[in-house]
Write a protein that binds this DNA or RNA. Sequence first.
DNA 1: ATGAAAGCGCTAACAC
DNA 2: GTGTTAGCGCTTTCAT
Lengths: 330, 330
Amino acid sequence: MATIRDVAKLAGVSVATVSRVLNKNGYVNKDTEQKVAKAIEQLNYEPNAVARGLAGKQTGTIALILPDIANPFFPGIARGVEDVAQKHGFTVILCNSDDQGHKEKSYIEMLRKKYVDGIIFASNTLGQDDVEQMNKNNIPLVVLDRAPTSQSCSVIRSRNYKGAKLAVQHLLDIGCKKIAHLYGPQELITAKKRMLGYEESVLHFPWYTPSLMVPGHFKMDGGLAAVKELFAKHPDVDGIFCGNDLMAVGALKGLHQLGVRVPDDVALIGFDGISLTEITQPELSTIAQPNYDMGSLAAKVLIETIESGVKEAKLYELDVELIVRDSTKR
Amino acid sequence: MATIRDVAKLAGVSVATVSRVLNKNGYVNKDTEQKVAKAIEQLNYEPNAVARGLAGKQTGTIALILPDIANPFFPGIARGVEDVAQKHGFTVILCNSDDQGHKEKSYIEMLRKKYVDGIIFASNTLGQDDVEQMNKNNIPLVVLDRAPTSQSCSVIRSRNYKGAKLAVQHLLDIGCKKIAHLYGPQELITAKKRMLGYEESVLHFPWYTPSLMVPGHFKMDGGLAAVKELFAKHPDVDGIFCGNDLMAVGALKGLHQLGVRVPDDVALIGFDGISLTEITQPELSTIAQPNYDMGSLAAKVLIETIESGVKEAKLYELDVELIVRDSTKR
DNA sequence: ATGAAAGCGCTAACAC
DNA sequence: GTGTTAGCGCTTTCAT
């Protein structure tokens, strides 16, 4: 492979000049620029990204840390991130943290050593100390689905509270008389907000009681188990708002096993808008999050931060959308 | 951040010695090793990966190029790749090619500039010329689901032909009297082999006719459309082997719309073993590929090649498994 | 067993 | 406008 020196020699100029035309900075005569361009062309020269990285401390690489790419919630985000990264000439490193703090820390360590230009966190175990650490190391980060902190980092999330209210209102609208909620891990802000939205929507109804809220851990199995637990206590429930789609799918399975018909006996709605919801029978109503958009926005914000060098700590809230399908059609 | 020079100074040795203990190569006295270790500890020194990459031409990075991480077939593979990469201290760059040759080429270009140590291709548009190009550039690669070529690169795939025969045999075993096949794009070797397996299993039956094979493009919509086309011609079909699960899900939808009961009227089996198949009602029988394992094996083979420097071009065929669920239970 | 020094390929002061 | 040169932080001969 040709180096910048080869180009300089062939063009009869110095490496500095070549570097200038490469990076389009500094003054350079039109004519010499032409000569350099020709030399580059002739030698089929490609700048070496690693050398660039070492010299300039910028590698054109960002990392995406998420719990598990195999969880259907994340591929859409990943795709969004990668698309805009790619468009801006950045490359994306994928990291699966399994929501384990130590894995996350070791990734961060490794990424720092590799001079990644920035990190997107879609993981839930990122500690306050980690954020500080990154800030100290001056590496920009954007986090997904977390509360804004005092630290300087931008947050992207969707309107979970509003979405929950939308979901419950929809169930009320179609005539539900007793609505339950399957909720996720309360250390996740998303799960919390959704539960809050539910609670505040139903608190004033005479039928409301806290035992209408059952934990389902954001998982399919959890949803299945939860629905059984729920019906043992409240066989008269006629509407369920699930904190995420995975639990809704599990709930659907559970209801099926119990011989409860959806939507006739019980109307069911989830949250997230993953593609699984279009596959069940009946198809599931859901509150769709702009999954892909969250990823692409995160990348956009991060890359802007990287390229401008200005660290701002904004909060971006994306809108959610009620998608009505057969599971709530009466 | 401390550099190797700082460590050398503090330990009272030369940078060469520090480098030796870092890389555990060359001779170094036990005592000096201790001193160096202590200095490293004290300074909290971490070697700079970029500088290492520039000096040594090895970056500890591999790339995974696949059509689309949002396609449910790939996250499992990606997870498998990342897990073993991580275990070996490698980092994974994710690339979505959308099966477009030009995107793939531009990724390769970029990856080469970044000194990635190797590439895993799960993409279908990789040309023979690209492989040669990589070989010339001496960058190891492992490909998934492709025919072995004359070029030196290893291939990982699962037994598609055998899986197809397994599927058809299963349909025969449960008493199907007329079996159809929805097939995928014939430029994909996986689609081809599966069709071949079907054909050779049913060719000798009097009921067999080529119009029992209908294209479904490996997509959900395609499966849905295909099943309608199929039933227009062959309303007496009582078993369908779908070339992949996505089409099977679509087919299930289509059959539902046609008022055909599964499995009572028509038994349905897919191929791939993606998680969607556990979500439908009824759950879908399928031929499961060891998705995760294909990814982890690919990474293992690639990293071995990288670390040993020995390029072998082996073919690894992984076994598939018949998973019987309600869609073929009679 | 250890050190000096020449790169790896590029960027960016600084000088002209 | 262009060239010289000193890094970036590490690896790796080649001496000793």
